[in-house]
Structures are given as structure tokens and as C-alpha cells.
Simulated assay, not measured.
Amino acid sequence: MFALDPFTVLFTTTLTCAVLAAAMVSVHLSFRREVAGVGHWACGLAAMVGAGVLFLLRGKLPDALALPVANVCLTWGIGLSMIGTRRFFGEPGGWAIFHAAWTLELAAILYWLLVEPNFPHRAAAFSFIVSVFYLDQLRLVWRHRVAHFTSWFFGALLALQCLNTVSRGVAALFMEPDAANLLRSSALANVYLAIANFMALLITVAFLMLATRKLQQILEQRSTHDPLTGVLNRRGFLQFFGRVRARQQRSDSPLSLMAIDLDHFKAINDQYGHAQGDKVLMQVAAVIMRSARQCDVVARFGGEEFVVLMPDTTLAHAQQLAQRIQALLRDSLQAGTPSCTVSIGIAGQHLVSESLDSLLARADHALYRAKANGRNRTEIAGPAPLAA
């Protein structure tokens, strides 16, 4: 029978945990605002390193000191990973579960180590307590599941680790006393030792994969969205228009575009300051988003100008949407926010061959006409010339 050297496995795992902890710290320091929970995972890995060092020093330190502290550190490490996963998914930290678990683990190991020595009971207590942390993370993965490999990979590893941990607890209670003793060479101990240490490292890597994917999504959103109002920027709008244009060419459906500009916005900034001006922009963006349909897309093209692309929309329906925006803007003024109005120009794309630049230019010309005719009004652009 092939036997694993527990001390070699433990040394390798401890060293790898230290490297992963350093990687987690680097990610946390760089993206602490973007990705929550990574710092707790880093602290958990550091606690596991401390536990590994204490287990490696067993025999040089009294068991009455080394074993309780090492087991508590290991419980802290797994518990902090649970808290980190909770933070990552935007849920409360679960500190009550964490403190109850490590306190119960410390009481159990002290009792069955000093008062009534019983290794199987110590092993079972640890296994069942830490399995709660894995089960809670499994719950989080299932609740926030997405159809992506990283999510399923993380969940599968947690399930396997939980099953492995519970199996050791059951073996400690109902099989021979040495079955769950990792320092003794047995088939069950070898299987548990291999799976537990390998899974602990893989679970950490899987969480890093989740964090990396979330960070990638955040960076992609930042590249396509306006940071102040949350609507699309010009780059995001161009990407969306490309998809709409391809669909329109297949179905020959109508398409309308609305150019919106705040009236006298420079006067608002000069009189109330740029902070109030930003609030006005956010309020206008919120009103436009609330008025638009789910299939419409809203973008900010810089300054105080917004653009709304409306697939499968005629000019008549686009004009109704413009009137609704202006009415909502009058009725939804927040206390302390300067009042404002908007001028709107609308252009309809009747020729599939017309370029986006031509469509935007016609909507802008209608917008300028609305400004010239007294502001706070809507104008419709004329049809595109055949040359467009």
C-alpha cells in the first residue's frame, strides 16, 4: 500500500498556502474596492500557515499548547474563507457563526485532550464544525450561481471537500481509533490527507478565479459605461449599435435615435457649482432610464448630451417617449436640486444603408433647431438624403 508522508504533505501545503496568501494580499491591496472578501481569504490562508507551522513543530512544543492553538488557527483559516466568500457575494460576514465555531472547537479539543483524552472525538468535533463553513459557502455558490465554469468549479470543490471532511468525522466515531489519525499510515488517512490538502489549495485557486472574473467584468463595464451616471459611454454605445444594426438589416425594422441636451447647463454649473451640476446630470440620466424601455439604450456622449437608441420604434413613438421624459423631469425634481429642462432632437433611420454618423448628425440638427426655437421642446429631423 502506498503511504503518504504526512510531514512532507503538510510542509508542501503550508508553503503553498504562504505563496497564495501573498497573492491574495496583492489582489486585496490593488482591488479592495472592486472585489470584496479577498482580504479575509488572505487572513485565512495566513492562519492556515500558522496552523501548519505548529503541526510541523509538534514534538518540540507541548501538545497541551501546540494542538489547541493549531486547531484553532486551522478553524480560523477555514472560517475566514467563509467570511471572505460571504463578502464577495455581498452578504453579511457571518461573524456569529465564525466565533461560535472556533470557540466550540477550542472547548472540544481542550476537553478531549486534557480532561478526558479521546482522539476520535477530537477529530470528529473538528470535522463536523469546519464542515459548517464549507456548507455555508456551498449555499452561497448555489444562491448566486451563474452559468459559468468558475462558479461550478468552485462549488464542486467545496462539495468534495465537505464530503471528505464529514467522512473523516464519521470514520473517527464509528471505525477503529486510528482510522482518522493522519500521523498513522492507513488507507483512509492517506485518502483524506491527499484530498484535504489538495482541495484546500484548489479551492483557493478557484476563489481567485472567481475574483479575477468579477474584476474583469468590472473593468469591462468601466470601459463601456459613464462613471458618473452609470449609462453607456460612446464606446459602449457603438458596440450596442453594431448589434442593433445587424438585427435591423435582417428584419428591416424601424429605428429611431434621440439626442438630448440640458438647457442652460453652464449657468447651473456657474450658479450652483459643479457638484450640483453632477447631481443634475445623474437625475436627468435616471429620468431617461426610467422612461426608456428595456430594449432601448441610453448613453452619455460627454458634457450634458445624452443619446437614446430605440430599436423597432417609429418617429411617432419616439416623440411620445421624448414628451414623457420632459414631463417626468418637471415632476421629479428633488429638493435642493436646481431645476432644469432638456431639448430633444429625434431622427428616424429609414434607410438601412444610412451610417450612424449621418443619423447622429440629423438628430443633432433637430436638437439645435429645438434650442433655437425656445428650448424645452422636441423637434423631428427630416428624412435622410439618398446619398446617406
Rank of each mutant, 00 (worst) to 15 (best):
D270S: 05
S127P: 02
L182P: 08
Q248W: 10
L238I: 06
M310Y: 00
M24K: 03
T165V: 12
S131E: 07
L351S: 13
V231A: 06
K266S: 01
T16S: 06
L4S: 03
V297Q: 04
T229H: 11
P6L: 08
P383R: 08
A370R: 01
M24V: 02
H99R: 09
Q217R: 07
A18G: 13
E305C: 02
W152T: 03
S253G: 03
L65A: 12
S353D: 02
L262I: 08
S253C: 04
A211Y: 01
V35F: 14
F207I: 07
L262E: 01
L10S: 06
S151V: 03
N376M: 09
A361N: 11
D296N: 07
R250S: 14
T378G: 02
K60E: 00
H99L: 15
N118M: 11
A363P: 10
I288C: 02
L80E: 08
G39F: 00
I380L: 12
H274F: 03
L386C: 12
A381V: 14
L61D: 04
A159W: 10
H350C: 08
L386T: 14
L188D: 07
M24E: 05
G236A: 05
V284L: 05
V38A: 07
G374I: 04
A156L: 10
A194G: 09
R145E: 10
A363F: 11
S127F: 00
S81R: 11
A18V: 09
V244Y: 01
R245H: 14
L238V: 05
W152K: 07
E116V: 13
G90D: 09
A316N: 10
G77E: 11
T85E: 07
A42S: 05
M1P: 12
N71K: 04
Q334F: 02
A187R: 01
A123H: 04
A194W: 01
S253Q: 08
L328T: 11
A171N: 03
G37T: 09
R377H: 06
L232C: 05
